[in-house]
């Protein structure tokens, strides 16, 4: 994979700003006092032991947690300066702007073509020529086109796991998102596919902002420009953001002893 040739400049704009965010599942206080700026057109990785709230935090950005009864957030999360919790914000539109990839590839039980055309059709694109172009372009950007161009009518679920994950990425790309959230996108796929998806992330960040939750620290170190380390210090207490820095700094000279202990495998 290509090494990070040009580091994201310090003055890169913030795509997402989080200020003093607390998150609750009913009585359970999951996250506390999270403040972080997510840089535009960069890859940001969230790492930390299981149960440290990194997926919960990721799901705040496109308000996926709204779907969980009793879940609530306090504090500010803004996308391009716009508070996403404001009443006027349409979660469906937000989820178009902020797409999501899950651990288990989840193509719809329909053809490869229809999977990718699904979002654009919902948005009202109906001309076949236009849809054809979006489908091809999205599959090309997801580095899947060459493998599927002759079998577009075949079911998405007939593909291999790694191909399915790239199909899901193409499906997200088809609606031109600004941000892509990836929740453990490589945990369930083979190493060759992992490599393809990591390469893909490096290509996609030219145009979109990527946030990835990963248990694989080497992956975080390989693919991300920035890394945030989350930790629940005491069972039952809310998790905190311990350290957030450029990935190159965090993996060579972390400033916090807890980060150091975690990434060097001394606990967790």
């Amino acid at each position: 994979m290509a090494l990070r040739a040009t580091p994201v400049p310090d003055n890169a704009p913030n795509k997402i700003t989080v200020k003093e965010l607390d998150f609750f599942y009913g009585d359970f206080h999951a996250l506390t006092d999270i403040t972080v700026d997510i840089k535009e057109k960069a890859v940001t990785a969230f790492i930390g032991p299981s149960g440290c709230g990194k997926s919960t935090f990721l799901r705040c950005f496109n308000r996926m947690n709204d779907l969980i009864p009793g879940a609530r957030a306090e504090g500010l999360v803004s996308l391009d300066g716009q508070d996403i919790f404001e009443t006027g914000v349409d979660p469906v539109d937000l989820r178009r702007r902020i797409g999501m990839i899950f651990q288990q590839p989840n193509p719809f039980p329909m053809s490869i073509y229809d999977n990718v055309a699904f979002g654009p059709r919902l948005q009202g694109v109906s001309k076949k020529a236009e849809l054809d172009e979006i489908v091809q372009h999205s599959l090309e950007r997801a580095n899947l086109w060459k493998e599927v161009k002759d079998i577009l009518g075949r079911g998405g679920l007939t593909l291999s796991g790694g191909q399915q994950q790239r199909l899901c990425i193409a499906r997200v790309l088809a609606v031109e998102p600004e941000v892509m959230l990836m929740d453990e996108p490589c945990s369930a796929i083979d190493p060759t596919s992992v490599q393809k998806i990591e390469d893909l992330m490096a290509e996609l960040k030219d145009r979109i902002t990527i946030i990835i939750v990963t248990h694989n620290m080497q992956q975080a170190a390989r693919v991300s420009d920035f890394t945030a380390f989350f930790l629940q210090e005491v069972a039952g207490d809310p998790a905190i953001l311990v350290e957030y820095d450029r990935t190159s700094n965090l993996f060579t000279s972390p400033k916090d002893r807890r980060t150091e202990d975690y990434i060097t495998g001394r606990f967790g």
Binding site: M217, A221, P254, T264
Partner: peptide
Amino acid sequence: QFPVARDLR
């Protein structure tokens, strides 16, 4: 072993 942080240093 993919050492990082103080181990890598």
